[in-house]
Design a protein around this nucleic acid. Structure first.
Lengths: 243, 243
DNA sequence: AAAAATCTTTGACACATGTCAATAGATTGT
DNA sequence: ACAATCTATTGACATGTGTCAAAGATTTTT
């Protein structure tokens, strides 16, 4: 594997980061905040298609996404691939590496990206000093566990259209939280990657998109999606709790 | 909900617990170990069929299983249920509650059980004092994330027989680590619960058991299972890496 | 011990999704 | 601008698993 990414020696400060509210716990004095700046060692740029880390890489750091979009995926020995998640700005990636000191999945940039490198030793040291940070780290890990629980529900119990509806709703909700539109989005991943995440084939994903489009629920043009009837999507995802 | 379980005021000590090696980080001096005893507040007994905690319960404690066997499951609004895991002695349960201070799944005892109640505030306090404990807590959470990644692989990519083979291999492996047989086990869960975990219907589970039995790979009699050809199971689960 | 309830197995058939193939549309490189 | 390469869509058909139903087994209740 060629060294497709370079670690840049830019000292960066969480205290002046515009993503602080997504990454960091709230309620720090600006004094404390200064000390927290040392969680982040450097930033690193990753080109579209390159891996931030790969299965088997030794684990040293968590990564906070500043810009760009990632997928994480695990591979079976026979080459079958499962996308385990899509991550965007403000989200933390690399938690899989903690348990065994090496990564057990691949993190691939779906567009040019920049991440903050947080050496895990720093995170642990500062966590002992700042209970709020400690709590924050615990919550991030717990959130990931809960997210994966709901993906298991998707994969185990839902049908193709329900899965895609849930997927789209989740994506726009997260994008909206980052200041983007509630109704429009540009997918950063292919039909095949969506399918891998949702446990279905790319053709089935495509058919479900077309069906939603025929029904006037969404407008689709390749990777552009506009949600026309969010309530209809919610109803597909969860018929019970909708009008 | 009736108070089906009672919290018993038994002070217990990790330092003298025979499950210590499963629950606790290694490498403590016996001095440190004494202080760690205060992680556990009490023990609690749960009867078969009762919930240790339920979706919506407020989160205060993690639980270390001393005896017994649990399932955790999430429910969709329409009543559909997804088993997200089966837990046995030495395993930690309740991590889902950390992120939002209430539980987002149910933990049900599949046989009479006893757990150590570890108030999470204690865990966090002591984690700040003992880096080894801090690391241990992080590893437990990361391990759960990695486990769920591999369940996603099962649900998203594998077929019924592969899923059941993986399930059986994982169960005996964990039981073996606890001193039980490598080849015999008694299932604590129904076909329906296995099916819910593996994303298939109980009839499909039953058929897969029968198929394995017909092929001489396992012997099944209701919930008793003997693994006759572990290599055949491994081959089904993962054809590539086996002889 | 009988009766009731629950769990498991098995068969027949249905159907959602996978597979294979062809076409069209987008993107990249020369 | 053109070819080459991806990516997405759509159709026809195959198939693995779900659904429904019946009968045994096992456990619990009376």
């Amino acid at each position: 594997m060629k060294p497709e990414t370079i670690t840049e020696a830019i000292k960066v400060a969480c205290s002046s980061c515009n993503l602080r509210e997504l990454c960091m716990p709230i309620g720090f004095t600006s004094d404390d905040m200064q000390k927290l700046d040392s969680v982040v060692a450097t930033r690193r740029r990753i080109k579209q298609g390159d891996n931030l880390f790969s299965n088997g890489d030794s684990f040293t750091s968590l990564f906070a996404i500043r810009t760009g979009f990632f997928k994480t995926c695990v591979s079976a020995a026979d080459g079958r691939d499962q996308v385990t998640g899509f991550q965007m700005a403000g989200e933390i990636i690399g938690l899989d590496g903690i348990v065994s000191d090496y990564h057990s999945c691949n993190a691939v940039a779906l567009e040019d990206a920049e991440v903050c490198v947080m050496p895990f030793a720093n995170v642990e040291d500062l966590s002992r000093e700042f209970p709020q940070l400690q709590r924050h780290v615990h919550k991030i890990m717990s959130r990931e566990i809960v997210r994966e629980n709901s993906v298991m529900m998707l994969l185990g119990n839902m049908r193709a259209e329900e899965r895609l509806a849930a997927f789209l709703l989740n994506l726009v909700q997260r994008l909206h939280a980052r200041g983007f539109s509630q109704s429009e989005l540009t997918l950063r991943m292919s039909r095949e990657e969506i399918g891998s995440y949702l446990g279905m084939k790319l053709e089935t994903v495509s058919r479900a998109f077309s069906k939603f489009s025929d029904e006037g629920i969404i407008e689709v043009k390749q990777r552009y999606v506009r949600i026309i009837e969010p309530n209809a999507l919610k109803k597909i995802f969860n018929p019970e709790t909708c009008t």
